[in-house]
Simulated scan of single mutants.
Amino acid sequence: MADKILLSTYVITVEEKKVPLNLDKLYEDENFIELFESFSMNIMKDPFIPKSKGIFTDKSLTVPSAEILNNRLPFNIDASNNAIYGYFQAGTGGDNFDIMNNSTNVREFSVNSNKHISTKNVFYYLQVPPNSTEGFLVLQKIKNFGIKTDLNNALQIRLKDKLPKGVLVKLHNRVPYDLYKEMIQYGTLKKVEFIKNTVPANMKDFIANNQHARRVKGTMTHTMKMRGGFTSEWLKDAADILRGNNTKNHRIDFDEENAYFDEATFEIELDGKKKTFHTINKNKIQPSVDVTGDVEFDKNKQPTIESLIKVSQELIQDIINLKPKNV
C-alpha cells in the first residue's frame, strides 16, 4: 500500500515581550518571508544539528540540493501570495545496516553510522496573509516522522542574531481543531478507516477473529461506510480520537483486550467540501490532513510540488475562512 500524503498545520509568530509583531514589516522593513528565505540559505550552507541535553544528536536538518530534487530549486518565493515553499531534508543516523536487493536478497550497500545518515525530503508551504501577526505553515508528515521540533529549535537558534535582543520566533501547533470541530459539529462523517500495522500469522486466525493469535508485520485496514453518513455517536467518538482522548500506549484503545488500532482516518463532508483527518500515535493531539486523494503523482509515484502547493493553499484558507452556512 502506498504511503499516505499527510499534511500538518502550524502558526509562526515573531514576538517582542510576548506581543506578536506584524510579519509583513519587521525590523528594517524586512518581512518574515524574506527572513525565512535567509534561514533556509543558512541551514543549506551549514546544516542544523539538534542537541539533546547539551549533546549533539545523530539527526540533521538542512535543505536538499537541486540535484537531489531533479534540478528543482529547493525553495521558492511566491511574491503574489507572500509565501515561500520547498523542501527540508531531515536526516537520522546511529545504526549500521545493510541495504538488500528485494528480488535477489543480495547486499547492495552497507550503511556505516559514522559516515551515512538516512534522509527524507519534507515539503513545506509558508504563507503570511496581509498585515498579519501570524504565518501559516504547512508541513508534510511521513508516517510518524516529522520535523516540527527540530525546525522550531533551528528557527530559535539560527534567527537569534538576525533579530533584536528579546525578540523570539515561535512555532505553535495549529491543530486544525477549529476546522474539524466545525466539520464534526455540522458535517457528515462519510468514511472511517482503522489501520493495524500487523496482521494475523495465518488465515484461520483471521477468519476466527482470534485476538490472541500471533501477529506479523503487515497492514490491515478496516474500512466502513454508512448510507447517508454515520450517526452522531460515531462523530463524537471520532472527535475524541482526533483530540487524543481514549488513548493508551500510543494507540487507539477501545477498552477491550487487543481491540486497538495503530492509525485512524475519518472522512467528513460539510457544504460539499470533504476533508480526511488522519492520526498516528494517539497520545499526540496533532492530527494530520490526509490529502492522498487530492494530489497528483509523478512517474516515481511522488506527489508533484504543484499539487502539494494547491492543497496547502486550500488547507490554509479553510482554516482561516471556513464558516458553516448554518452557524
Rank of each mutant, 00 (worst) to 15 (best):
I280C: 06
K17H: 12
R243I: 02
T276P: 07
P324S: 12
A83Q: 07
D290A: 14
Y260D: 10
F32R: 10
S113F: 05
G218D: 09
I43K: 08
E257W: 05
F97G: 06
L69A: 14
T304Q: 09
N152W: 00
V128G: 01
K310E: 14
F261L: 05
I142E: 11
Q317E: 13
K301A: 12
R107K: 11
G218S: 09
A154G: 01
V295N: 13
P47V: 14
V199G: 10
P287H: 10
D318N: 08
T92Q: 12
T265L: 10
E16N: 14
S80M: 09
M44T: 06
S38N: 09
Y87W: 15
G187T: 06
E108G: 14
N258W: 05
G93N: 05
P200M: 02
I117W: 00
F277D: 12
M183R: 11
D318K: 00
N96Y: 02
K59D: 11
K323D: 12
T276L: 11
S60N: 14
K301E: 15
I316W: 00
S110V: 04
A201K: 11
Y85M: 04
K25W: 01
S65T: 13
D178N: 10
A238C: 13
P324L: 05
N210R: 01
K204G: 06
D262T: 11
K17G: 06
E233N: 11
A239L: 09
K148C: 00
K141N: 12
Y177G: 08
R72G: 00
T304D: 08
I55S: 01
I147Y: 06
I320A: 01
G293V: 07
L322N: 08
G272K: 06
L179D: 04
M100K: 07
L179H: 03
V311R: 14
K248G: 14
L73V: 14
F39R: 06
L126S: 03
D78K: 03
I252A: 10
P287A: 10
P303E: 13
G166D: 07
Y177F: 09
I280H: 03
D29R: 15
I43M: 05
R107S: 13
N42F: 00
L270S: 06
E256Q: 08
V138L: 04
S38T: 04
V128S: 01
F109I: 03
E108L: 12
K190S: 04
S80R: 10
E193D: 04
I207N: 03
E306K: 13
I84A: 01
Y180T: 03
N121C: 02
K25S: 08
N197M: 07
E314Q: 09
P50L: 05
P129I: 12
H250R: 15
L168E: 08
N131C: 01
D24M: 03
Q127D: 03
P324C: 04
G187C: 02
I252F: 15
N71R: 08
Y85E: 05
Q286C: 04
A264L: 12
K53L: 10
T231A: 05
S103V: 07
M44L: 02
R214F: 08
I99Y: 02
T198G: 09
N31V: 11
I77G: 07
K274P: 05
E134M: 05
H212G: 08
